[in-house]
């Protein structure tokens, strides 16, 4: 498993990155942790004549918790997320989700930016970021722009990011209330059979807001607005959860693979979501 030959660049700043992207267009790609990209290159499923390593570009590895939002640099790794007490205090769902990604070695290398930019429906962070209503900051030669996570994903490996843009940070409005990241997989190191992110607030036993997103159940992550809406204003009784699950099932479109056929995936998606809602509610 040897990748095709390529040129390697390790620019020291974003201007350097953008210049190479501009020069080589489609033939150039940035690499963060490389733990999605390198396996694809080794299998020769991705050909990257010009590979731009982002590791030396400054300012991409910070975690900042502000009064109303959290900003996570694109090069922050899953391990960094797990280790950050400040982040865990502010948005514990991030740690809960990160711990369910891959294995320890991969988590040291895999980055938030790579995970959300990759566009693989199996990645866990995109759904999570949709649930948290995060915004992705993209920078290109024309400057910076922000795209909501909920508008970012178009199809498998197709996102709103232009080829010449780099994702620099993820901003998350400070979440409140109860949370849960629930994932079923065949073993450690596997992508989700089905996963659900849920963030819920309540007041006096009535649900005041609910955000729900599902992973690996369509060719993009699925933010199910209807599933969340079904919970708001209820006391999270069985009927409310049932209608939330039904709404979610309407929104997903899983395909058959080695993890199982469509009927199974839908059923598990429902079970996983119910459990996530119940756990989030118990923490709300």
């Amino acid at each position: 498993m040897i990748p095709a030959a390529f040129e390697y660049y390790r620019p020291q700043d974003m201007a350097g990155v953008l210049a190479i992207l501009e020069e080589h267009g489609d033939d150039a790609r940035v690499m963060a942790g490389g733990h999605s990209l390198i396996p694809m290159m080794k299998l020769r499923m991705a050909e990257v004549p010009h590979l731009i390593d982002l590791q030396d570009v400054g300012g991409l590895s910070d975690i900042t918790v502000e009064a109303s939002r959290i900003v996570i640099g694109a090069m922050v790794t899953q391990a960094d997320i797990i280790d950050s007490a400040e982040l865990t205090a502010a948005a514990p769902i991030l740690r809960e989700a990160a711990l369910q990604i891959a294995d320890p070695q991969v988590r040291y290398m895999g980055t938030v930016g790579g995970n959300v930019a990759n566009g693989d429906p199996g990645n866990d962070m995109p759904g999570l970021m949709q649930c948290l209503d995060a915004t992705f900051t993209l920078v290109g030669s024309d400057g910076e722009r922000d795209v909501p996570a909920r508008d970012f994903y178009e199809a498998a490996y197709m996102t709103a990011r232009d080829d010449e843009e780099v994702l620099t940070a993820v901003s998350i409005p400070l979440p409140s209330g109860g949370y849960a990241y629930e994932k079923q997989k065949r073993k450690i190191g596997d992508y989700a059979t089905a996963a659900a992110s849920v963030q819920i607030t309540q007041s006096g036993g009535t649900c005041t807001s609910a955000a729900i997103a599902m992973t690996n159940l369509s060719d993009t992550p699925i933010f199910s607005e209807a599933a969340g809406a079904a919970l708001v204003g209820t006391a999270l009784d069985d009927a409310a959860i049932k209608s939330s699950v039904a709404a979610m099932l309407n929104d997903i479109d899983p395909t058959e693979d080695n993890r199982g056929p469509i009927a199974f995936k839908k059923h598990v998606a429902g079970v996983i979501l119910r459990r996530a809602i119940e756990r989030a509610w118990s923490r709300a």
Binding site: D103, R186, K187, I188, G189, D190, Y191, N258
Partner: peptide, 28 residues
């Protein structure tokens, strides 16, 4: 509990990597 070499109707092997060919870790 999961380890198999599976083929589709065209004779493509569907379980050629350790993602799909089940080798349990210490956790399982």
């Amino acid at each position: 509990l999961g380890q198999e070499i599976a083929y589709d109707d065209m004779g493509n092997c569907k379980t050629g990597t350790l993602m799909d060919f089940f080798l349990p870790t210490a956790w399982e």
